[in-house]
Amino acid sequence: MTPHHPLLGRLERFYDAVSRPVARAEDIGPLTLFVREGTGWPLYARPALRETGPVSADDVDRVRERQRALGLPESFEWVAETTPTLRAAVERSGLTVHEHPLLVLGPGALLPMVRHRPDGITVRMVAPADPALPGALTVPHLAFGDPGTRVGTAGPAELVAALPRYGTPDAVRAAADGIRAGRTAVAAAVDDASGLALCAGQRLVVADVSEIVGVGTLPAARRRGLALAVTAALAADARTRGIRTVFLSASDEEVARLYGQIGFVRVGTALIAGAEG
Rank of each mutant, 00 (worst) to 15 (best):
A193H: 09
A174R: 07
V172R: 07
P112L: 06
F264E: 07
R266K: 11
Q261D: 14
D170A: 15
P101F: 09
Y166D: 06
G106K: 10
R64P: 01
M113E: 15
A189K: 02
R10Q: 15
A174Q: 08
E99K: 01
R224L: 14
R117V: 08
H141R: 12
L72I: 10
R239K: 11
P42Y: 02
L31P: 02
D191T: 00
A48E: 05
S56P: 07
E26V: 13
T122Q: 08
Y15A: 14
R183L: 14
L198K: 00
R50E: 15
R92D: 15
L218E: 06
G225Y: 00
A232K: 12
A132L: 02
L8I: 13
A109T: 09
T85G: 12
T39M: 02
A229P: 03
V213C: 07
G108D: 15
E12M: 05
L43H: 03
F34H: 15
E26A: 07
V267P: 05
P131A: 04
L234T: 12
L142E: 13
L43W: 07
A188S: 01
L95Y: 04
R92C: 05
D146K: 00
T82K: 01
E77N: 10
A154C: 06
A161K: 07
A189M: 06
V209Q: 03
D16V: 06
S56N: 04
T39K: 02
G178N: 12
E254R: 09
V104R: 04
R64M: 15
S251A: 14
R24L: 13
L11N: 08
S249L: 14
A188P: 01
T2P: 06
G152N: 03
V97R: 07
F144L: 05
P156W: 05
R13E: 15
A89M: 12
A200D: 05
Y259D: 05
A235P: 04
L137T: 14
P42K: 01
G178K: 09
D177A: 14
E91P: 00
V190C: 03
L43N: 04
V267S: 07
A273F: 09
S194A: 05
V213E: 13
R36V: 12
A256Q: 11
L271Q: 12
V55D: 09
G108Y: 09
P54Q: 10
I121S: 02
T184G: 00
G201C: 01
A270S: 12
A23R: 03
S251H: 08
D237C: 00
C199G: 01
G38K: 08
L70R: 01
R87V: 12
G216T: 11
G120T: 10
C199V: 05
S210G: 14
D170C: 01
E51Y: 00
E12P: 00
D61K: 08
L49F: 06
T153P: 00
G71Q: 11
R46N: 10
T82R: 11
D177I: 03
G145T: 02
E254Y: 02
P30R: 11
A57P: 06
T153K: 06
R24K: 08
R183Q: 14
E77Q: 13
D58A: 15
T96I: 13
I212M: 01
I179Q: 03
L70M: 09
G155Q: 09
L70F: 03
A143N: 04
R180C: 11
L11F: 11
T168P: 01
L95Q: 06
L8Y: 06
P118T: 14
V205W: 02
A273H: 06
W41S: 11
